[in-house]
Design a protein around this nucleic acid. Sequence first.
DNA 1: ACCATTTCATTGAGAAAGTCAACTATACAC
DNA 2: GTGTATAGTTGACTTTCTCAATGAAATGGT
Lengths: 155, 155
Amino acid sequence: MTDSEAQDTAASWQLNSVTEDPSFLLARANALSLGAGNAALRPLGLKVRSYSVLALVCDGLYPTQRELADYLRLDPSQVVSLIDDLESRDLVERRTDERDRRSKVIAPTGEGQRVRAEARERVRAAEEAPLAVLSPEERDTFSALLARVAFPPQR
Amino acid sequence: MTDSEAQDTAASWQLNSVTEDPSFLLARANALSLGAGNAALRPLGLKVRSYSVLALVCDGLYPTQRELADYLRLDPSQVVSLIDDLESRDLVERRTDERDRRSKVIAPTGEGQRVRAEARERVRAAEEAPLAVLSPEERDTFSALLARVAFPPQR
DNA sequence: ACCATTTCATTGAGAAAGTCAACTATACAC
DNA sequence: GTGTATAGTTGACTTTCTCAATGAAATGGT
């Protein structure tokens, strides 16, 4: 079977029960987007995960590691690894929070800001592909709805 | 910090650059949906992955492992494990494809169909939660757009 | 009919990611 | 002050991902 035939098979399968399942669609769309994003960031030595951390840190929020873990739904130990990696490359730095000396506030370095700016452009370009199938208006609608699903009002 | 304060922090952060990033939103929405789905399926000894396989197999498509791998974007070796697991529980069975004896067609057992029906209901119920924030019309719109993103026309 | 190439399922190795239980230092409530 | 709770860290362990290699079977060219 050639690649295009495999594609045809997948396409013809769109008439099945799984394809109507939003959670399955979400997983697949995420896989596409994650793949494109990681590929785009590879030259910078980043992945979507580490980029998300870097971007949050560069937003002037000075988050603690705990806040990063909550926001990104990561185990605190994963945040340790991510920050270790970014800090070892001098993209961010840990600063003990003087108001609560248990926690560490993460601050971007100048280099971190620079890398983040480049990463942002690469990610933006990479996102075009998966979302290119939607018109600009559809894309806005989709993003708005998605944001509400991703951040339910409360729970 | 209490849980609700952490929630507040996350909520207040919605004014940052990452939150506008569709790929990040997709990742987060997927994490929510995956968590809910896996929790709902745990009593049946399934996960969202294995359920996706079982559901496809029960759709009367008689897919080969290769087709499952393509469709679910999995490495063929992962499909081996998934089918091993389902087959060991007599939910599906491998049948050598007589038209191409290299490949194996996966067929559901009666028990597989039964478990799948129950799993479908559980997944449906679990999906309500993440999507409950949308009105029925919004939900339809969202699903339709998501389906196009997840299955781009061709590439 | 033969040979080279390709594909499918499988195995196994190694990397990456997720989960969980301790532990230290610090903060907070009483 | 003392007990309890939290932030970060470490380490163990499991799961998942990614890749290379292999045997069996199909395909195409000559």
